[in-house]
Each structure stands twice: as C-alpha cells, then as structure tokens.
Design a protein around this nucleic acid. Sequence first.
DNA 1: AGCACGCCGACT
DNA 2: GTCGGCGTGCTC
Length: 694
Amino acid sequence: MSSTGENGAAEPEQLAFIRETVRRAKPRTWRGAKRAEHLPVARVVVDKGVLTIDKFFDYEVPAAMAEDAKPGVRVRVRFGARVVRGQREGGELHDGFIVARLEKSDFPGPLAPLAQVLSPEPVLTPQLLQLCRTVADRYAGTLADVLQLAVPPRHAKAEAEPSPPPRPRPPAPAPGGWQRYPAGPDFLAALAGGGAPRAVWAALPGPGWPYEIARAVASTLSSGRGALVVLPDGRSVARVDQALTELLGEGMHVALEADLGPRERYRRWLAVSRGSVHAVVGTRATMFAPVRDLGLVVVWSDGDNSHSDPRAPHPHVREVALLRAAEEGAAVLLGGHAVTVEGAQLVSTGWARPLVADRETVRQVAPRARTVTDQDQHRDAAAQAARLPSVAWEAAREALAAGHPVLIQVPRRGYVPRLACGRCRTPARCRRCEGPLEAPSADASLCCAWCGEAENDWHCAECGSFRLRAQVVGARRTAEELGKAFPRIPVRTSGRDAVLATVPDEPSLVISTPGAEPLVEGGSGYGAALLLDGWALLSRPDLRAGEEALRLWLAAAALVRPSAEGGTVVVVAEPSARPVQALVRWDPLGHAGLERDERAQLHFPPVSRMASVSGSPAAVADLLGLIRLPEGADVLGPVPVPALRGQEQERALLRVPPGQGAALAAALKAAQIARIALRTPEAVRVRVDPTDIG
DNA sequence: AGCACGCCGACT
DNA sequence: GTCGGCGTGCTC
C-alpha cells in the first residue's frame, strides 16, 4: 500500500492519479490479515492533540506493510473503535507517525492494525522527534501540536523526485567582516575545527551582516557538519540566501521561504531530510529543519516578534534554537543589530560569549546620533510645516544636498497608544480599568477602548495637563506633509502592504514603517534617518517597550552611512530615556544588560519564567485550583482582560524562580490533563512566556 | 471529544 | 423486574 511513495519512474499524471485514488480509497480493515513476522508492533504518535494528551498508541503491522512501516513514516490509523456484537467496528481514520517498531506491546488489549502507510519516506527522524518532545514540554503543549509546526505537509510529486547527491564540503572561508570583531576570527576557527562555540552577536551597522552569517555557515560546513539560519522575514532570508550563493555557489544550501508554494517547499525540505543539503536558511519553521549532524544554529534579530509562532504552543525560534543546540551539540550564533534581554541573560550566566566590536570600530562605522524632543522650537517655517523639529529638518536637508536619500521612520498606527498627554506624553488611560482612551469621532467625548466608560473631564495623571495629543500621524500623511516641506524631492513610502525592496542612491524622502525600510542600492546607505514619534514607542504599556523601541531604531540606523561619511540619525524622543542613550552610544549589549538586571530585580522574565492562563473567570479559577505549582511560585491575578467575542475573560500570570521553568510547564500540563478528565467544559488558554505582559 | 460501561430511582 | 439518569473512564 505504498504506491505513492515508491521511487518508481511513474509519469506525473499517473502519480496524480495514484494520489487521488489513495485519498479516496477506503483503506482495508486488514482484519484477519497476516501480521509482520519481525517487530510486528508499530508505536504511533496520533495527530489528535488534546484528547490523547501526548500518549503513543501501539498498532499491529500487517505483513504487507512490514517493509514500509519504518520509524518516522506517515501512517493512517483507526482510532476510537468500538465493539459491536463482539466485533471491532469502525473508528475514525487519523494521521500519525510511526515512532518505533517493537517486538511486543505493553498494551494489554488486542492491537488494531495500521490502516495504511502513506509513504515510506521517514520524515520524522529520531532527532526531530526528540526536539519536538522537548519543545512540547518546554511550552506545556502536546507533541502532536509541535509536530504540525515541524513537519511540512506531504507533497507526493515532490517526494517522487530524487534529491541531488550531496556536495563535497567546502574549504574554510577567510574571516572577512568578522575581523572587525576581536573574537570573530576565533569564533569562525572554532566552527571550522568542529567546536560548538556559543555567541551573542551585536552586529555592526551596514550591509555586512548577511555575509558574516554566510561565513559562519561556510566554516561549519567545512568541518563536515550542517548549519541552520533562521531570520524573521522573507527579505532578510533573501539577503542571506544571496550571500550564501556568492560565497558557496549554487547547490550547497536551500532557502525555505514562506512564499515558495507547497511543492517546492517540500522538495527543498526533503533535500535536507535526505542529507543532500547541509545548510538551510529560512523563516521560523526552518528552526525544525532536519539538518543532519547539526553544527551551527544562527538566529538573526531574535527580538523580532515574527520569531514567535502564532500557533499553539507558540514556540519561540530562539528558545527552540537553544534547546536544539543543547540536544545536538551545535554552536549558537544569536545575532542582530540589537541584543535582547534573553541574549544578555545568556551572556550574564556565561552560557554564551559576547561577540561585539570595540568602541573605536563602532564609532567609525555607526552614524552620528542626535536626540531632540518634539517640543523643541520649530523656528524654521518649513520645518514647522513638516511638523519636524528643526534639528531633524536640518539633518534631512544636508543629506539631500549631499545627494543621498533620507529615511523617515514612522511608528505604525495601532502600534502605539491612541491618545497621550499633550505635554508629557503619558498615555491617556481609563480611570476605571486602565484601558486606553480613544475619541470615537473628532469632537466627541473620550471613552475607554476596553470597558467603554466615558471620560468627560480628562487630565493627565502625571503632570495635570488638560491638553491631549492625538494619535501618531501615519506614514501616508507624513509623506504628504514632508512633500510640501521639501518641494521637488521625490517622496517614496514603504509599509506593510507595499514594501519597497530598494531605493536608488539619490536625493529622496523614504517614509517607512518599522521593518519595511528599503535598502539603498549599491550598499552605500541613507544620508540620514529621522526616527519620528519616539515617545509613542517608548510609552507602550509593555514590558519590552524600551527594548523594542531600541531594536526598531537600530534597524533603521543600521541602514545609514557611517558618521565619517556624514551619516546622521535624529531620534525624536526624550534624550534621557535609556534606549535613546543606548542608540546615541550604539551600545545594544549594554542596554540589554541593564534591562536584564532590572528584570532580575523585579522577578520578571527571562530571569524568572512566566506563563499566562486565560479564559472565563470560572475556567481560570478551576485550573488555578487544580494546579500543583512548584516551590517558590507566585500567582499574579487573575485580573479582567478585554472581552473576547463578548465573553468575560480573565487572565492570571504564574511566575517561578530561575530554574523552575520546566517544573512550571509540567505543572500546567498536568493541570490541563486533570481538567479534561474532570470534563470541565470551558477551555483555558495556557501560554508559556506570554509576550504581552504590561 | 464521543461513546461506552456502571450503579441507583420510577415505570409497565 | 428493567428502562434509563448521566458520573467515569477509555480510546492501541
């Protein structure tokens, strides 16, 4: 029954036909069929998350499947059968993977036979299974859920194609741009020598970082091991893909972009799984790519939210990388222009070494950064028309006069508080529930976006001012206003729906939301960057607001020419704020270290570990009543949170001291299982490492 | 989740 | 006696 997977030379049409037949045909029941003589039991992970709560199920291997039913292959099994008049009947067909072949089962009852081996391709390797198990445990999730993230859907045509033969290992590359980092050449040498160094890398500004990543990959390949690079978006994947092709030529690596289409994606994934390719670059799902003999894991810009998977149990690429490196003995390179608090934590515990340039090099390569508050006098009439502080206006004018484009970063609408104090920028909040205030129409009175309570005589809780400042001005209107202020200078915008890849190196205004900044053609960089409305980023009600603001600023500033070539960054924000200071000094590691120390004192993650539990008040209370928390755990809340689909919602945060993260996850999982057994109807959502802690 | 088995009250 | 209430437990 392995027709679709045989390496035969069937024509495409024929394969399509076979696939259709397989899908429609009702698999045999195999009742009374001969069973396999050797290892007649297949242990199966059934793809049915919640209700089977992470148990394996044993099935009998019919003799006809003895060859194909290897560990790692996809199978279909009947599950939930009942006995009618002494005979087993029915049971729903479910997909699953064989995890082991056994001589006998420890299940006391009679085993049902496997219904079907979908394909003889062993896609779930022992290492991948182990990784998924570890990730599921880390996030209090089920193995089946993680498998769905880790193993791409099968594509029969792609599977029928042979993968190319493996290429010989390349020679170790020269250090190149790594020479700019004192510890860089040694790091590469360790990779080439088969070692597993671990580093947190504060990448210098400029277009070099994809090439540094490519050299780290090439060094690892030269040791005969494989490498994995995970980036937050398709644009950065394309840049590293390009750098790898330049350094290693075609065929040494594959890129797993999201927009490939299922067939090409699976074809490339199979090339990795079959060992024909040893280097992979891609977005978050790439973290699970079954690279053989893994020597290096690279995560670029680990503070980027795209590294957090939106699907349960929400694993984060950085955490999977660390778990995987530990399991497979691989090196780790956690890089970005910014450094996350988690990165600083790895450095402070000594688990990873910092990979940073010395101050002198940073001064040479980084643009000059200036700060300005937006209350500064708009002396210049043109600057006033553009709503720009005059310092920013001057910087833009100089860069344009020198013949270079100017980048203007504008926070995305909806990313920031809707209304804030006109004097001190403190977000306007509801007096009853702390929700954000909003003005439904231009002249209507204020009301709370969460609880709807009207607010008729607002004044600032911090400074007492009665003046409100409206929402951040979006990219579109900024473009219009700047266009008037700089007549005859082309204005281009790049944003979520229409991202510009590059702009020419000529005078123009490039207005962009964070993450959509175009590169300047020729790799030379912008003459200046204006980072507008910094107050809005800094005042977000989020634990990570400062870290995130700095990350977005550094990403934009990294595209600007060095100060020696006149490159200037102007950030419109309170000059004394810590992220603003870190931008001026270009000291991301120092900033992350300070944030880490502060979080440690406040018992916040990542030093402590947290999980959130949310759902109806009754369901949350129920789970909190059942859970047996580890020593030293705190329960914060529950507190009401904005209603979901009209249902009242609460959320509690659970917090454990360092080293108790695994115990917390285990306790959460046990409590979830207990709840299902008690058949409490309403679901609770459990999230380890919640991202939106106010 | 479904869907069986199991141990106590009012019916033909 | 026995039909059926849904509490409890299982699904290989």
